[in-house]
Design a protein around this nucleic acid. Structure first.
Length: 269
DNA sequence: ATGTCACATGTTATGTGA
């Protein structure tokens, strides 16, 4: 079972890239962020043609999240609980093949300090509260998406350019660390402890050719899924294509769930 | 401040967000 997360940065603008990548990467489940499309403008038919079901939450101009899957998803939520006044489309959750898949797009938070940064930290708190409840259910859960946090120094190229940025701010990093500490496994990092594993390269200043990237897209796995983690990686090639998103897809490969223990056969006599 | 991209508003650019 292959699960991917991909900040697509405009689903319609990037549709040819996405379809090509789906064909070559063949993920079973894909979490998409930054659709930048109204709900009615989501190109569902194209994904059906490509063999995927889809659930999504659009928003005109900004944000927007979706989950594509080979098996039919059962949407469990299309918003992060905790603030009914939050109208931004940044969270969608579905049950797929016995896994609860949460697709999230955490606020960027710039400039900081300021109201946008406050919103980011508040959103993080709500996510952390919800994540705790999911963990308590003791089921296979993956929290996948663009967290807009480079968790450590290893997750960003050597630079001073981002020192005042919300992506590396101590509060952002502390919030991420606090979430992980609940008992989640950072899938990419646990399998690649020494490589940067960047997922984002800014369009500006030749950041892609210079490999001046950040690791912003993460998979957090509940213990039941962490036990099934076989492989993880970044499809960097996607970032080098024409008209690419500024993010590359990240993916994990999971083994099958253990077959349920067979009941002891009753003796015949 | 700059750099790059895309969209909205609605002009022959500018603001906004990332």
């Amino acid at each position: 079972m292959k699960i991917a997360t991909f900040n697509i940065n405009n689903i319609n603008r990037r549709l040819p890239n996405l379809l090509q990548w789906l064909k070559s990467a063949k993920p079973d489940i894909v979490c998409l962020q930054e659709l930048k499309a109204a709900h009615a403008d989501f190109p569902e038919a194209e994904f059906v043609k490509a063999g995927y079901h889809a659930v999504w939450k659009g928003e005109r101009t900004w944000n927007g999240v979706a989950i594509l899957s080979r098996s039919e998803p059962i949407m469990t939520r299309d918003a992060l609980p905790g603030d009914p006044d939050d109208k931004q489309s940044r969270y969608i959750e579905a049950a797929i093949d016995g896994i609860l898949v949460a697709c999230l797009y955490l606020p960027n938070g710039n400039p900081q300090p300021g109201p946008k940064f406050e919103y980011k930290l508040k959103w993080f708190k709500r996510l952390t509260a919800h994540a705790k409840k999911l963990l308590a259910q003791d089921i296979p859960v993956v929290l996948a998406g663009d967290y807009n946090v480079a968790p450590t120094e290893l997750d960003i190229y050597k630079t001073k350019s981002w020192d005042d940025d919300a992506l590396v701010a101590p509060e952002s990093r502390a919030a991420f660390a606090k979430l992980v500490k609940q008992g989640w496994t950072d899938a990419i990092r646990i399998l690649h402890p020494d490589e940067p594993m960047f997922t984002f390269w800014h369009y500006m200043r030749n950041r892609w050719p210079r490999d001046a990237g950040l690791r912003l897209d993460h998979f957090l796995l509940s213990p039941q899924l962490a036990a099934r983690l076989h492989d993880a990686g970044i499809d960097r090639d996607a970032r080098g294509k024409a008209n690419a998103s500024d993010h590359a897809p990240a993916w994990i490969e999971l083994g099958d769930a253990k077959a349920k223990k067979k009941r002891k056969r009753r003796s015949k006599g």
